[in-house]
Simulated assay, not measured.
Amino acid sequence: MSLRPALTAAVGAALLLLAVPAASAADPAPAPAAEAVTVDPAGGIAADGTVTLSGTYRCVNSTGPVFVASSIGQDSSTVRYGIGGSRAVCDGLEHRWVNTGKPMPGSLKAGTARVEATVLELRPQGLLPLPEFHATQQQDVTLVQR
């Protein structure tokens, strides 16, 4: 058996390890994303079925109107309900958003639900504005009776 293939592999592995910088406690934390949207872990559902969802967003570089849209679904259903849409400001700072809406009566109840929030810009392109997605987030929330 020749030593040459084993030696070549060992040298290659050592060079690969040297090329990868080691992480240390002195490394700075990653910078926050320039564009992001979050969803608060709890939402509200009123006796009349009105749903309130909230969270934060951050976006930059918009040329058209920007909105935070949200939708919600429950159980294993593929049906999702749009819950409002609030106007957004894309100045690079973190802002709060709150959306309310009233889906079909009886369609949602207190408990776990899946929410999707999207920061969406209507960017001017010729005669029609086209959607430009800045950020999106999906997560489970708890709907609390209010």
Rank of each mutant, 00 (worst) to 15 (best):
G43R: 10
F67Y: 14
T56G: 07
V89M: 06
T78N: 08
G101D: 09
W97Q: 04
A46Y: 09
T8K: 14
A13D: 05
G12H: 08
E35Y: 01
V141M: 10
D48G: 04
K102Q: 13
R80G: 00
D40P: 00
P65V: 13
Q138N: 05
D27Q: 14
E121T: 02
V68M: 09
V11S: 08
F67R: 13
G44S: 13
A6N: 08
S54G: 14
C90H: 06
A88F: 05
A14C: 06
R87Q: 11
V37K: 11
P105A: 09
L130H: 03
A36K: 15
Y81M: 06
G64S: 05
N99C: 01
L93C: 00
E94F: 00
D75I: 02
L122Y: 08
L130G: 00
A25Q: 13
V20K: 14
W97P: 03
V37C: 12
V20C: 10
V89S: 08
G12N: 12
T112Y: 01
L130Y: 03
A42R: 15
Q137P: 01
R87V: 05
G101C: 04
G126H: 01
A19T: 12
A46G: 03
A88H: 07
S54T: 10
G126F: 02
M1T: 02
P103V: 04
T78Q: 13
V66R: 14
V39H: 08
V89R: 12
V20Q: 14
R96Q: 08
E35R: 15
L93Y: 04
P105F: 01
G64Y: 08
A13I: 13
A88C: 04
D75P: 00
R96W: 07
G101P: 00
A34K: 14
G55R: 09
E116M: 10
